[in-house]
Amino acid sequence: MELLLAVTIGILVATSVYMMLDRNVLRFLFGLVLLSNAVNLVIFAAGRLTVGAPPLIADGAYAPDGPIANALPQALVLTAIVIGFGLLAFALALVYRTYMSLGTVNSDEMRIAEPEEAKK
């Protein structure tokens, strides 16, 4: 199971790096989405995988009965997903605004803030 997850993460990272090398900012952003999902899986895998043992405590008991899944990485992943969602939504809106305003999504052509040395 760990191996499968590791291979999946590897494929995700490889794909995202490929996309992030593109000049098109939108493709870059999609690569970033993939990468953030890969990282979420890393956190999930870091908490060790246990099959079919939800972290629930029975009524009246103070501790779970037997080994359970690690709940902390799940909480971390959830937080990371939420934050990642917010940031990426913002980034997407920003790319859209930039496209509307500058008329390009090619990062090579984005030279407004840093113009090439003007010929005097």
Binding site: P73, L87, V95, T98, L102, A113
Partner: peptide, 29 residues
């Protein structure tokens, strides 16, 4: 226009750093 142009670079590069940070946290945990 200037702000959007600078903003794109700021946002994208900082997002990569964020993801790197998160990976580090996951592995360290």
């Amino acid at each position: 226009r200037e702000q959007l142009d600078g903003g794109i670079k700021y946002v994208t590069l900082n997002l990569i750093s964020t993801i790197m940070f998160l990976t580090g946290i996951g592995l360290l945990y």
